[in-house]
Design a protein around this nucleic acid. Structure first.
Lengths: 133, 133
DNA sequence: TACCGTCTTCTACACGTGTAGAAGATCCGT
DNA sequence: ACGGATCTTCTACACGTGTAGAAGACGGTA
């Protein structure tokens, strides 16, 4: 499942959901309001995006009366996984090793981010690893 | 600088260069040969890609006689940085923190890759970090 | 019931991408 | 100088993406 830039934006609005539960269904109107003035899209633009997302199976559509509501069928996590995988394939020849190396070495991470990554890994390393010298 | 899937493939062939120095210029023919039968593209397909890459400023073109040779103007590192940045923007709302968190937690890294990442960071941590407990 | 606001569907268009054929330009060997 | 191999440019076309207008359908209020 690949999303275009605009599709990511719409999916994000759906994932944010309306209420506390991200299982909420959202109408096109909801999505637009949730987006605010950021993209400044016309109503029909959002509607088109939603329709296309339904077509590609990323979102489910239901009707209440003559109003359609939408809910993501693909989780944010799954979408992100897929996006990262896609990136690694395109830009790193599928080599996660090269990807990881890039992030740690020449990557665009700032020092704080690198430190954060390091810290997270350090925490993570406490279980299931006998390498942490 | 955004590259499409096919453009990544061509750029990769250019970056691989012909010889030991990656400053080599490559002809369209070189590129095709270097690609092998993987994509199975027609000569003109590659030529079109190269022309488009020149148009978008990612590659320089020069002529020797009636043969054009190409050389990447954008480095692999720069392209990768840009690709990662783009991914983080699209899929993580620009938050590198969320990105890093994703990689370490729910990310698509296998245990060996995670371990490798950890190791690289550990090595990296030897300088400029007073956090490594 | 007539109407307005809102929602939906249909249609459109320009640009990017993947893919390549047709035809003209050029070079090397005979 | 001629011909075949090769290179170049031009053109094309289908599908995806960003963006949205036009017009029809519907539901609630006066």
């Amino acid at each position: 499942m690949r999303f275009s830039d605009a599709e990511w934006i719409v999916m994000e609005a759906l994932w944010r959901g309306g209420g506390p539960s991200s299982r909420e269904r959202s109408s096109a109107r909801d999505v637009i309001e949730r987006l605010g003035k950021q993209p400044g899209w016309a109503y029909t633009t959002v509607k088109t995006m939603l329709t296309r997302l339904v077509e590609k199976g990323a979102v489910t559509e239901e009707r209440k009366g003559n109003v359609a509501t939408y809910r993501p069928k693909v989780s944010r996590l799954a979408a992100r996984k897929s996006a990262v995988k896609s990136l690694v394939e395109r830009a790193f020849g599928g080599a996660y090793g090269a990807f990881v190396h890039h992030l740690v070495e020449g990557g665009p991470l700032s020092d704080p981010e690198r430190a954060r990554l390091r810290k997270l890994l350090a925490d993570d390393a406490q279980d299931a690893d006998g390498d942490s010298k």
